[in-house]
Each structure stands twice: as structure tokens, then as C-alpha cells.
Design a protein around this nucleic acid. Structure first.
Lengths: 338, 338
DNA sequence: CTGAAAGCGCTAACAA
DNA sequence: TTGTTAGCGCTTTCAG
């Protein structure tokens, strides 16, 4: 039972294509008798209008392109799931692409999605792109008038709708929390020092220290490159000074830090308190359970999708907006009680 | 700078559309002078052929539809990432849909993707679908001649390419491993008793016990429904008999079991050994680190994509194949040493 | 070397 | 009530 088209139905009944089209779309212009017959025939033969033809005709695809750096990262998975939920409710489906943190792949992907394939795009920048700060491919998308929403890893160089986490405030709040529970020597471990996100969190950390009159010490910041060994760096750190709190800018690093300091005999949280970013499954199940900063990934995704669809469907001009999502601190057992 | 079409370029140069088309596609039929001018103009104006028009013309979309029950499950994320990798290499992109374990949504999704939107489909069944065992929507896809590959949660009722884990063998091997390390009373906790996957693992478990002359005891199988409380059931179990090993059919359950029995004062692995299914991040980072059955999700995804693309691109008829992927046991610290 | 025409599958304005 | 025509953007014969 091959795919059937209007043309074939028309031939079968010896009527014109447009008659069939109208009949199937239940137009009042067609006599009830014919209509019924055609509809029945269509159903029996499982007629489905060709979506591609419709897209061409209506110049919209009801498709949203989503480009994320890495789907294996739980935060992005959550965002993705939020986007999917809202998109689905509003009748859109997702074309999903993974940039793999690569600039080249991101460029190629956007190039590809540019050609009328999607009605709009939701993107979080690849690490390499943020590092190189090459943004032409985004500008191209905008020039083609394709609505674009960026989330989490965004760039000031691009003027478009954005949904971001208040990373500065998150770094600030977290550091203050450490200070509140009595940790004055707070180290920070970051594997994302190239990204806007990472930098903002460090800024927040600085600000909180400053306000508490604790001198900022760059040696307390561990910047992990791809090749670096956390264990080695951490050893240096622990020998350098007596650390009371460690804040890690991603979940895996936080869990690793926890494991390593426990292995060295430190008690958590009695000796050292630990807070991680990204509140994923890992944080909940390690022991002691990790106090973590939740970025509300699903909500970010939902918001991004709403903003995008709004823009796609509105005819009037609207200024670009930036939605800032606040983080929350989920307190568990890796931090001292107040 | 709005999207430009062949027509507009043609108008600009006062030539025909087909000339422009040929020039842009670097046809030898066009004079070098004109060709150069048109190509330059196209580049300057960032001309991109409209993908939708091409799809309509060539009756293929270079798009693969992927339907998974739940992207927040790490196994599916891994499979997804494997599919994406291969698809990308071969020039396909993914339309991704989440069925949310719902039969209704799965039907709607397949219906939607049926209309010429994708060149092929990769699907893992929703739990509800497996439970109801309603398969008509899959048959419809097949009837429309759309290549379909099912993975992991598949059905015998559908004849198509499949990529599955050898779940029977996995249950068997795992149970044997328990027996080898000296655990004779092995309990099994399943939250997926409706699925083919879960049933096969239980079968394997049975077989291994039988071979070792250990009587099968259904009371040692904890079947968790949506409403059930693992803690309560586990308490019954531990009071019922002295348990030496627990095998949990998904990662979260495994980690929960671990937590609960530790909280009750059992030592792992000295008193009770634990093995979980799905080798995700969680297993690696809990303590003690969980011995786990790896299903090689990424590899499954890659295989599914290869099989599908093979089928899409081959003109000749090929019989349906079923690829069986073997699991591996990743031994960590939650099981006694041999 | 260039262009006219047909057609992918569909809808919609306009005739009949 | 039904049909004709045009067109969405593109490629591809086949004429000129």
C-alpha cells in the first residue's frame, strides 16, 4: 500500500485535483455525496497530505531547530526536554543537532538549517565558538530573518532573544552561602573558564568575597583545561592553604572533588563543605548528597520555546528580550548547617 | 537582507530561472562569464537553495525521525547521541520526538512523521504501548513504505529491522556472576516488568538459577509499580529472607536500593552485593561504585542509524535483520570479589 | 550556450 | 457544485 496522492484519488474518481483537495478538507463547496465518497476512499487508502508540499506552499515548516553543544550533559538534556514539551503543545517538532562543542560543526549546522528547513532556532553556543568569539554564522541566520533564541551560553555580540541563567548572582549567592555557614577560605574549581557562564560565576564569587572583606586569591581558583589532572591540582590546593569550602562549576567536577577529598581523609562537610553547579541526578545520589545550584534546565527550555514561538507567530515587530532565570540552591548534606 | 530565490537572481540578470539554476550548480552548459557573475552575485547575496523545495522535488528529506520514550533517561540519551553521530556523518539530520511513555503520543507522533517528513524512522516503544500491545501505528508506517528500525523496546508483532540488547543473556550472565561470587539468594528488583526488556532479563535470571539448582522463588522478585514504595517492599524482602545479592533492572532503582540497604546497616558488598542495569554516570559515582551491566547505548544508536540509512539508500529488497548487541558487566565495588 | 516547459503535491482565487 | 489556473522554489529534459 504505497503512499497515495490527491492526483491519484482524482484520477480514480475522474474529478479534478482541487475537488479532491476541497472534499478532503471538508469544504462546503463540495456536494455531500461526492465528499463522503472521497473521504471514505481517502481513509481507506490512508491518505496523508504531504507535509513537504504544504511547507513549500505555506512557507513554514512548523519545525524548530535546536542546536546544543552536548546532549550527554544533563543540563542540556533537561533544556531539550523543556523545549520539546512546549514545542509539542504548540504543534511544532524539533530538528535537533549537536555541535559537539565544535565551532566548525556549529557553523555547518546553522548553514544547513538556514535553508528554509526551520521556522526558528534555539541555540546554545559551542565552547569553541565562545572561545574564538566568531559570530558571523549567527548574524547570517538573523539576516535571513530566521527567529533565533539563544540560551545559557550566549553572546553580547548577537542581538536576539535570550534566556540565561543569572550566573553572576548564582556565583555570588553560593559564595555568600559558604561565608554564612562559616567558610572563609573558599576555593573554586572550574572546567569552563572559557565560557561566559563560567566567567560570570567567578565574578559573582569575587563580589561576595569583597563584600565580606575576604581578600580574593587567584590561587584558590582551579582552572581545569582538557589535559589537566584534577587530582594533582587539588593536591596543590590543599597543601597551599587550609580550605573550608569548595565550589565546583559543573556537576561531574563537583562529584570528583567530593570523591578526591574524601579519599584524602577529609570529612564532608565537617572539614570541607562542597557545592556543585547543575542539580542533576548525580548530586542527589552521591554521598554525602551534594548541595547544588539548580539552574532549572527544563524551565529554561520551556521559556526559550515560548519566546521563540511567540516571535515566529507574531507579525508585528518586537524588541529582543532577555529572560533571566534565577537559580536556587538545593541544600543537601555536603555543606555545614548554619 | 531577505532570503533570495533563483527567480530574483534571474530577474536581476534578465535571464531565465533555469540558467541561474545551472550556473549556480556549476553546469558546463553555461558560459564562463555568465556563470562567474551569477555565482558571485549568489554568494554576495547569500543565496541558499530552499531545502523544502528540493525535498519535494527529490522526494527525500535527508531527515530521520527518532522517537524515544524519555530523553531524561541516560540510556536513551546515549542511544540518541549515537544515532546523531552516524546520521550526521552520512548527511542526515534528526527530527526528534519524545513519546513520554504514552501510547497516544506515540501514535500521534508516528502519524505526524508519516506524511513524507522523514526518510526513515528509529523508534523505541513507549511503555504503555508495550503494555497494551497495540501495534497498528507501526504497521501503518511500514505500509507507507517508510523504513523503520526499532531498538531496545521492540515487538515481535512488527516485522522490521531491529537492534536489541541481549537481555535474556544479560539477566543470565548477571545472575551467574552473583552465583560465582557466592551469592545464592539473589533478589531482583524491576520497575519495568511490563516491557519485553524486563521480562527477558527475568527469564535469564530464572535460567541461571535453574542451572545452578537454586529453586526459583517469586517472592524474591520485587515488581515496582508507579505507586509502590521501594522502601516498604525492600523491608518486606529483607525480613523475608537473608539476601546475599540484589540485581536492579534500572540504574535509579539500583542506586536507591544501594542507599536504602546501606541506611539499614547492611554493608555493601560484604553483606549484600548489588548490580544495576544501565551503566550511566550514576553508577560510577555513588559509593561504593556500582557494578553495572553496560548496554552500550551509543553503539546501539550507531548501529540503528547505520542499518536504517543502509535500508533507505539501497534500492534492492533486503530481508529484515535483527542485530543483537551483547552487554558487558562493568565490575566495580558493590560486588564481592571472586 | 540559453530558455521554455513540465512537474514534485498541494491550496486557493477565480471561472464556469 | 466542480474545474481551471497559478504558484510555492527548484531541477531537468528538450528545444532553440
Amino acid at each position: 500500500m504505497k503512499k497515495i496522492t490527491l492526483k491519484e484519488i482524482a484520477q480514480y474518481f475522474g474529478v479534478s485535483i482541487s475537488t479532491v483537495s476541497k472534499a478532503i478538507n471538508d469544504s462546503h463547496e463540495i456536494s455531500d455525496g461526492l465528499k463522503a465518497k472521497i473521504q471514505q476512499f481517502a481513509k481507506d487508502n490512508k491518505y496523508r497530505p504531504n507535509k513537504v508540499a504544504l511547507s513549500l506552499l505555506q512557507r513554514k515548516t512548523k519545525t524548530i531547530g535546536v542546536v546544543v553543544p552536548n546532549i550527554l550533559n544533563y543540563f542540556f538534556t533537561q533544556v531539550f526536554s523543556g523545549i520539546e514539551k512546549v514545542a509539542n503543545e504548540r504543534g511544532y517538532i524539533l530538528l535537533s543537532c549537536i555541535s559537539d562543542e565544535s565551532y566548525e560543526k556549529e557553523v555547518a549546522t546553522l548553514e544547513f538549517l538556514g535553508g528554509g528547513t526551520v521556522d526558528g532556532l534555539i541555540v546554545s553556543m559551542a565552547e569553541e565558538t565562545q572561545f574564538k568569539n566568531k559570530l558571523e554564522h549567527f548574524q547570517n541566520i538573523l539576516d535571513e530573518q530566521i527567529p533565533l533564541v539563544m540560551f545559557d551560553r550566549v553572546s553580547d555580540g548577537i542581538i536576539c532573544d535570550k534566556v540565561v541563567v543569572d550566573d553572576f548572582e548564582a556565583g555570588y549567592k553560593t559564595t555568600k552561602y559558604f561565608i554564612n555557614i562559616g567558610c572563609r577560605t573558599v576555593a573554586l574549581v572550574t572546567a569552563i573558564d572559557h565560557s561566559s557562564v563560567g566567567k560570570l560565576r567567578v565574578e559573582g564569587y569575587r563580589k561576595a568575597l569583597e563584600e565580606a572583606n575576604i581578600p580574593f586569591d587567584d590561587k584558590l581558583i582551579l582552572r581545569l583545561g582538557k589535559e589537566d589532572d584534577l587530582e594533582v591540582l587539588l593536591t596543590f590546593l590543599l597543601n597551599y592553604k587550609s580550605i573550608e569550602g569548595i565550589m565546583a562549576l559543573d556537576e561531574i567536577t563537583a562529584v570528583e572533588v567530593l570523591r578526591l577529598i574524601k579519599a584524602r581523609g577529609y570529612r564532608v562537610p565537617e572539614d570541607i563543605s562542597v557545592i556543585g553547579f547543575t542539580n542533576g541526578k548525580l548530586s542527589r545520589y552521591v554521598s554525602p548528597a551534594l548541595t547544588a545550584v539548580s539552574q532549572h534546565g527544563t524551565y529554561i527550555g520551556e521559556t526559550a520555546a515560548k519566546v521563540l514561538i511567540e516571535r515566529i507567530e507574531s507579525k508585528e515587530y518586537m524588541d529582543s528580550t532577555t529572560k533571566v532565570i534565577k537559580t536556587s540552591l538545593i541544600v543537601r548534606d555536603s555543606t555545614k548547617r548554619v
